[in-house]
Write a protein that binds this DNA or RNA. Structure first.
Length: 228
DNA sequence: AACAAACACAACCGCGCAAGA
DNA sequence: ATCTTGCGCGGTTGTGTTTGT
């Protein structure tokens, strides 16, 4: 249902877009407007499938797209919304002008979800480093041995586990400093997450009932909540 | 300098929904 | 009521770049 023949069957081009293709697509849309994606490739003379054209336009060529690092404010909004509505990236993107759903999805998967899963505080506030091997899409770089001077033999069985767990404790002064700063950052993120979670599931404080999602009202509630 | 590991992000794929025939 | 078409979304993969050894 609704499935289009894949690019291979139609001998269409796949992979990265060239600047020439970008120019053709942008020019065509500038002259004819968005929409009618199905007929666009043929009319514009592009050997691309409709989906590919649409994605390229929406995520890259369309005007007003912000590129570069997410700000702290954007971070917070993403965390808030992801926590409350889940992986509804297009919905979240509507609250971040200039950011696309794809951008946000990528950012979440490669930055935020890892950061939030990596550190969980115990009740006493102590930072617990979660075994990265258990985190889907985990921060594998962290498992790389950081303390090369350590003469302690490593048990191959527990190697990655031990390496990830001793990340902060065994580092040299300079590295230790930045690791501590990272932990502080993680702490802030975790406490923000916990605050939001607490709000969401505490009947007195919940700004809206996420369990009875009504798209329209939910969006209004969230907008006013974000502005508050 | 060379290599490997990890990151960052662009693009693809499959599915589901809505509208129209 | 059913089928087809077009579109949008979220998950996943692929690839170029960066970083550490």
């Amino acid at each position: 249902m609704g499935k289009e023949p894949c690019c291979e069957k139609l001998a269409l081009k796949k992979g990265r877009w060239t600047t020439e293709e970008d120019e053709i697509l942008a020019k065509y849309i500038a002259e004819n407007g968005e929409g009618s994606w199905k007929s666009l490739p043929k009319n514009a003379g592009l050997l691309r499938c409709a989906k590919s054209c649409r994605l390229r336009w929406l995520n890259y060529l369309r005007g007003g797209i912000k590129r570069g690092k997410m700000s702290k404010e954007e971070d917070e909004i993403i965390i808030k919304l992801q926590t409350s509505v889940g992986n509804r990236w297009s919905f979240i993107a509507r609250h971040l002008p200039g950011r696309t759903d794809n951008d946000i999805k990528n950012y979440w998967n490669s930055h935020l979800s890892r950061r939030l899963h990596r550190f969980r505080r115990k009740g006493d506030g102590e930072v617990v480093i979660v075994d990265l091997g258990t985190v889907p899409g985990g921060h594998k770089r962290g498992a790389r041995p950081l303390n090369k001077t350590s003469s302690e033999p490593t048990n191959p069985e527990n190697a990655s586990h031990a390496e990830s767990r001793c990340r902060v404790e065994v580092e040299e002064p300079e590295r230790h400093k930045s690791a501590v700063a990272e932990v502080e950052d993680e702490k802030m993120l975790c406490s923000e997450l916990e605050r939001v979670e607490a709000m969401l599931w505490d009947d007195d404080e919940t700004p809206y009932d996420v369990r009875a999602v009504d798209g329209c009202n939910l969006e209004k509630s969230i907008s006013s909540w974000l502005l508050s």
